[in-house]
Amino acid sequence: MNLRIKFTKKGYLKYISHLDTMRLFQRAFRRGNIPIKYSQGFNPQPKMSIANPLALGIESEEEFMDIELLKKISEQEFIEIINNQLPDGIKILDAKYVNDDKSLPSTVRWSYYEINVKTKNMMDKNLLEEKINEWLNKKEIMFERRRYKKGKEIKDVKNIRPLIGNISLVKDNKNINDDAKYIIRIRCLLKSGDNGSLKPTDFLEALDSYLSLNMEIEMADIKRLNIFTEVDGKIQSPM
């Protein structure tokens, strides 16, 4: 019995890691007496998988997780029991039994983010939009990614253009914030999952090297709005 659940991760709860989130759910399931299936073997683990790990510090409007149950309980009952056990910020929005033979994480392809980032420089909104389109129209966007493996820094230069789906600039009046710095709001569709992925912060770094707005990337407010899978070339929600 595979139950797929949709949940949020907002507010201060964005500061707990992927592993912390897994642990939090395991304990909530145990408190709620949810009949979860355990793996066999030396160190039995509850059968659950989160669609796509969210980096520390990023909020989310919709995350997905599959859990295997030993016996069926009604979706509504499940939501009520578990929401009672969850902290403010993490909330189950929906739950549905699914018969997918593919694991949830392996089907994830895209994440849709909203990013609010402060910048030291600013340009006219129309010009900004034009520049972003110009950037997206390039065949290749080369970006040097830094990763750490066994404490050693590994750099590789990669074309990230195929990892970017689309970008839209949210135009509203909030382009100046209280401490007199500029702020821009962007929505973007970025690759996520096993077939390549782009971190929102890497995306911002690449974008800013083109726009030269001098973004405060470390301080950006990033929120995942949606996760999409791709089935037979069609982009769709996991639920």
Partner: peptide, 19 residues
């Protein structure tokens, strides 16, 4: 919030735990 974005293990400082 600014501080939490900069520090290691920010969840040490947020409270809100069960119970």
């Amino acid at each position: 919030d600014r501080v939490l974005k900069k520090v290691e293990k920010p969840a040490r400082y947020i409270g809100m735990e069960k119970n």
